[in-house]
Nucleic acid binder design. Structure first.
Lengths: 280, 280
DNA sequence: AGCTCTTATGAATCATTGA
DNA sequence: GTCAATGATTCATAAGAGC
């Protein structure tokens, strides 16, 4: 049931939601905010190694409030990752529509998280058509009623710019999204503490990979990313230090390779050799 | 018409949208991204001086793309402002629903900007009730004009998720805000290039000040902040280096004190003494 | 007045061209 | 070669016109 694997450079996408600082203390040991960057960098160094040159690394994270202030470890992590060789390509905003309720004297509900995009090179793969959203009805209506007037206008307004647009929109019912994602959190994560909606990894998997590509979630948790990737016909590898999560993930997935790291391994710095467990 | 003023510590709120790096080059000289922090810090040092201990400083800013990467000057600015003594209390997201169009091979449209909240102490003034009523005039307007088409349109936009909120607001007096603001940019047709929607400063003015309080916009531009503050019965001071903007702001406001700095002053580091122009 | 339809345009970004 | 200027791309909104 246990075997050795030697990772090679083959991942097209790494998408993960690592434990946030001081949160999930009981499961991950509770990394303090001040130590977070130092804790993360050795791991991201390995991500850099196993990611294809055209691949993408998506990091879902949000800084917590410490002493009434937003802590700066995420900012420092971004700067440190650039030092490590990553390109900070983009920052997507995940707007949580149904964020945690509550009221505080000098703070509102936190309704967003960062989805940081890092790349190895400027020429990374991206499949924008895969995540197009339905267009606003104004355009649909416009196109539906696109009669002689519009055609005439287009013909008469050569070079005006707007007529040209109409022409481009004909037969199109979808538009490209922006870098703000509106997704609701899910509550059906039974035992895993992090609420990671399926739609979030799904969006990035569709955007940055094709069928048959390889997707890695190095903080697999309950295996949401792996399950979603599998459903989208991508190959996946999930890693987690907690056996419970691996077993939880087994229920969700079939034939997914779940790597179980020894929580306190003597030689875990040797990434090429580690204790693994093959499921099924 | 010109006079000397000696600023004292009396501002309850500083809310501003400074020129972004490399933008508004023709009007502000186009600060390069690499120089931005050094350019900003002397100014924020004065903000720190003239802000009440219980006051708030709101900074609307967004980093630009340089060489296919997000530039890090905003991150560095946050860290530098903390070094200067500011508390980084919160980061609000301004979601621009009508962001600039365009399509690029490996990037989506940029639909959000940062509204960074800084304070001098943990005990700052905040009036949450003021923004709990229909979330500002933008929501009122939307609800007022909410016809059948709007409902259909918003419901049909899968990617936005905005329709649900709209529907929830109908018939409800109060909505609990989060730290994500949904505001559209305004086209003012004026000469000022930055589109700073009135609802943005309005929201923060309501949240952090009461009637009679003092509001400062050190990059006043066309004076939107001052005009809004005035309408809300707050005292305002606007500062800008461009005389045209001061004159533009005069049309918008009455009895607002607009400070016109010499564009290339010999002793502009002496903040306490500067050439000013009193309007009316 | 309320609804539909029309139109301009915005802190954008990238590839290309020209100095 | 490096840097600056130009063109192409494209969607949500407000304001205005028309019924």
């Amino acid at each position: 049931m246990f075997c050795w694997i030697t990772p090679i450079i083959f991942f097209d996408l790494i998408v993960t939601s690592p434990p946030y600082a001081d949160s999930r203390a009981k499961t991950y040991g509770g990394i303090s905010p001040d130590e977070y960057v130092a804790w993360f960098l050795p791991k991201s160094k390995q991500f850099l190694r196993v990611l294809k040159p055209t691949g993408t690394f998506i990091l879902n994270i949000k800084e917590k409030v410490v002493a009434a202030e937003r802590h700066t470890y995420v900012l420092e992590l971004i700067l440190a990752l650039r030092e490590q060789g990553w390109l900070w390509t983009e920052e997507f905003i995940w707007h949580k529509r149904n964020c945690h309720p509550g009221k505080w004297p000098n703070r509102f509900r936190d309704a967003w998280e960062r989805c940081l995009q890092f790349n190895k090179t400027k020429k990374f793969r991206m499949f924008q058509e895969s995540v197009m959203v339905p267009m606003g009805s104004w355009a649909k209506t416009r196109l539906k009623h696109l009669g002689k007037n519009d055609v005439v206008r287009f013909d008469s307004q050569v070079g005006s710019g707007f007529g040209k647009n109409i022409a481009n929109w004909v037969g199109r019912d979808k538009a490209y999204p922006s870098n703000v994602l509106h997704l609701a959190t899910e509550t059906d994560n039974r035992n895993h503490s992090a609420t990671f909606p399926r739609a979030l990894p799904e969006w990035f998997i569709k955007l940055f990979t094709q069928e048959g590509d390889w997707v890695l979630d190095p903080f697999a948790g309950s295996g949401t990313t792996c399950a979603v990737a599998q459903r989208l016909h991508r190959n996946t590898v999930g890693i987690d230090v907690k056996r419970e999560y691996v077993e939880l993930a087994e229920e969700k997935t079939r034939s997914v390779e779940i790597v179980l790291l020894d929580p306190k391994p003597a030689t875990n710095k040797k990434y090429a050799k580690k204790q693994t467990r093959r499921v099924h």
